[in-house]
């Protein structure tokens, strides 16, 4: 369980978080929404100790993150997977190297174990088919092609999936997703949402998802937290969010829905002459 208690964080004169308190239960998906610049990504980075709060406490499984030394932080992070907004894959490495870099750098040299980890997680995120659905040779060929690709050879959606697969290496207890569907088309966004749901249920992980996408909220969330100007403006279930009379919440939902509708109602492309 993650407990955030009265956390403040500023960058120079800008007060990003102003007394945020919340609890994230185990085994559920908590979605954090809010406008750009309201401190969603900062909150996620505070939880994993990539940033330090100015005041307040953050506790993971009963241990204070803000008091951890470097060794304790690294130990805690081995149980946390983090999917970065732009996937943050290492450009010079192949997909396989990206996935097992952490294990390799911590001394794991057992090739069969590393290969198994790569294979399992690429299957988990749907980048490789279920091994049972293909012949052994067919699967090995598909694996070789994908595992040896560089991130620059992948599409945006595939990069995000590789980012998710990397976060799942080592079977973490928590997986954090920082805007996993940003910049993706609606179909790929839906695939990523389905993936987040599947992984939460299948692997029994605790997920925290940051998103602007209200449709992702309805699809993924057990609980929704809305940040507005550095404070928690809403904390409840997706249904409560939908039914909330709060004008700020309603404006956020309507504006997003209008953007999606506008996309859907875009004028048709004229036929070729």
């Amino acid at each position: 369980m993650i407990v955030i208690d009265n956390v403040y964080k500023s960058f120079g004169p800008k007060h990003v978080l102003r007394g945020v308190s919340m609890e994230i239960p185990d085994g559920k998906s908590t979605v954090i929404i809010g406008r750009s610049g309201t401190g969603k990504s900062v909150l996620l980075k505070l939880i994993v100790g990539l940033l330090q709060p100015d005041s307040g406490t953050i506790t993971i499984d009963g241990r204070r993150v803000d008091l951890m030394d470097e060794k304790e932080l690294y130990e805690m992070r081995r149980h946390v997977g983090y999917v970065f907004q732009g996937a943050a894959l290492f450009d010079s490495m192949t997909v396989a190297e990206n996935l097992v870099l952490g294990l390799y750098e911590h001394g794991e040299r057992d090739t069969s174990l590393l290969n198994n980890e790569i294979r399992t997680n690429l299957v988990n995120v749907g980048l490789l088919p279920d091994p049972k659905s293909l012949s052994e040779d067919g699967f090995a060929k598909a694996y070789d092609i994908l595992a040896n690709k560089k991130p620059s050879e992948l599409s945006g959606g595939m990069r995000k999936r590789v980012g998710v697969a990397r976060a799942l290496v080592g079977t973490p207890k928590y997986v954090f997703y920082d805007e996993p569907t940003t910049g993706l088309d609606p179909i790929t966004s839906e695939q990523i949402d389905n993936l987040v749901c599947d992984l939460t249920h299948k692997l029994d992980v605790t997920s925290i998802v940051i998103t602007h996408d209200i449709f992702s909220v309805y699809k993924v969330a057990h609980a929704v937290v809305m940040l507005e100007e550095g404070v928690i403006h809403f904390n409840g279930s997706p249904r409560q969010l939908q039914q909330s009379p709060d004008p700020v919440v309603q404006e956020f939902i309507e504006r997003y829905a209008m953007t999606r509708t506008a996309d859907a109602l875009a004028p048709p492309v004229p036929p070729d002459k």
Binding site: L50, Y74, F84, F90, L101, H106
Partner: peptide, 13 residues
């Protein structure tokens, strides 16, 4: 591009 943060998350200094 947050690759340094990704290293930190893999417990690689």
């Amino acid at each position: 591009s947050e690759q340094i943060d990704a290293l930190e998350m893999m417990a690689i200094h």
